[in-house]
């Protein structure tokens, strides 16, 4: 069984990682987690972003955050990516789409236009 002693060891490793990190100019991934988002499937979208961001080794540049209702419930799950002055709004997201957004947008810097609100049909 896992114990708090084990957690204390992980704490030391994590502390070292935090010390190495530079948080400036971080890109923010914001997932809508109100009733509308949750009912539409935002929970797996959020966990996929958290896993993929760390798995791709960009955890020091990208933070994954949660927010409430953005006001466009019919497009949920909605994910907004803030990079400096640029904002990209991805709509009707799924875990698979989230993987592609991490690989193409966050890692390579290419917006996945087909998933954005501009390309969506309600």
């Amino acid at each position: 069984m896992k114990s708090l002693e084990e957690l204390a060891r992980i704490r030391e490793q994590t502390k070292a990682k935090i010390a190495l990190r530079e948080k400036e100019g971080a890109v923010r991934v914001v997932v809508g987690m109100a009733t509308c988002g949750i009912a539409a499937g935002a929970r797996p979208v959020l966990s996929t972003f958290v896993e993929e961001v760390n798995g791709s080794g960009i955890g020091d540049k990208v933070s994954v955050e949660q927010t409430g209702c953005i006001g466009i419930c019919q497009y949920e799950p909605v994910v907004e990516i803030f990079d400096g002055d640029e904002k990209t709004t991805y709509v009707k997201m799924t875990a698979d789409k989230a993987k592609r957004v991490v690989a193409e947008h966050l890692v390579k810097g290419n917006v996945v236009t087909e998933y954005t609100i501009g390309a969506a049909k309600v």
Partner: peptide, 27 residues
């Protein structure tokens, strides 16, 4: 509260900590 006490100043939502918490619950 116990987790926080063990972690001290390390945030509970660090990826490694979240993974640990996940397997702690799954077990």
């Amino acid at each position: 509260r116990e987790v926080r006490e063990t972690l001290g100043d390390v945030p509970v939502n660090e990826p490694d900590i979240l993974l640990w918490l996940q397997s702690f619950l799954e077990e």
